[in-house]
Amino acid sequence: MNLLEVKNLHTHFHTDRGLVPALNGVSFSIKKGEVLGIVGESGCGKSVTSLSILQLLGNKGKIEKGSIQFKGQELTTFTKKQMRKVRGDEISMIFQEPLTSLNPLIRVGKQIAETILLHRENYSKNQAKEHAIKMMKMVGIPQAEEKYSQYPHQLSGGMRQRIMIAIALACNPDLLIADEPTTALDVTIQEQILGLMKKIAHETGTSIIFITHDLGVVAEMVDRVIVMYSGQVVEENDVVSFFEAPKHPYSQGLINSTPAIDQGQKLEAIRGNVPAPANKPNGCPFHPRCPMASDICKTTVPKNTYFGKQEMVNCWLYDKEAKTS
């Protein structure tokens, strides 16, 4: 059974300036112990997808349609209180901005202990503190006892992201969602954090959704990839086939424009930009930027074409192929 199964998820924001249909039918799943990458340019809906899973969309965002099954339970029908029990305990999240994601007025150790005390009612304050220090050691924070009583501003960005990871892992969650956890860090620190996350995936068996727009990170970290474009999943593939034979023209464009992967060759950036959710073009949302676009692409939304259980592409180019094979 899949640990998490998202089906046909539609998330909209009702803003002062009108409706923002950020997600339009996102489906994917993740198995226990798996590391799933979500890639796509910024604005494709990666963060909204992860915030939808935890229902942290704020008062403007709403899941309009679709299902999120977690360990066989339908999260979209959960009450606020039930959701609170899931957050930080069974599903936890790491955010992009280590510098602003911790409360500046609370000692970092306490911010870890808080999660433990929330979800482990039988823990005393002292036990929570001990556990927090253990977590700090596990994520590679030197002098953890001392650092426990420091405030976020006294730690570097890399150390703060380690604290965030310690918070996220404190209750040994089934699923960890990491939303661009290394984007804001410089390269050497980035490598250290990625190394730490790999170690975690290995040692704890926690399933990880790793969101990034950096394909180098994808190659290093994940087992399987889903590619998002304009609030939809346009390709799903295992990581090896994804890099060797990307199917969707958007995936191909992403790979061709990534320097670390395509060394030596001339980089071709994908022309144009991700459309804002409110100005989504008709037909295939990628067609204005797609070098392979044909007439049907401009008028009709392509269907998902499946290859085996775990491979999918949403593109007219594959529609016939799927029928014949």
Partner: peptide, 9 residues
């Protein structure tokens, strides 16, 4: 950090 607090439950 408010979003972080909510994400912790």
């Amino acid at each position: 950090y408010i979003r972080t607090a909510s994400s912790k439950g």
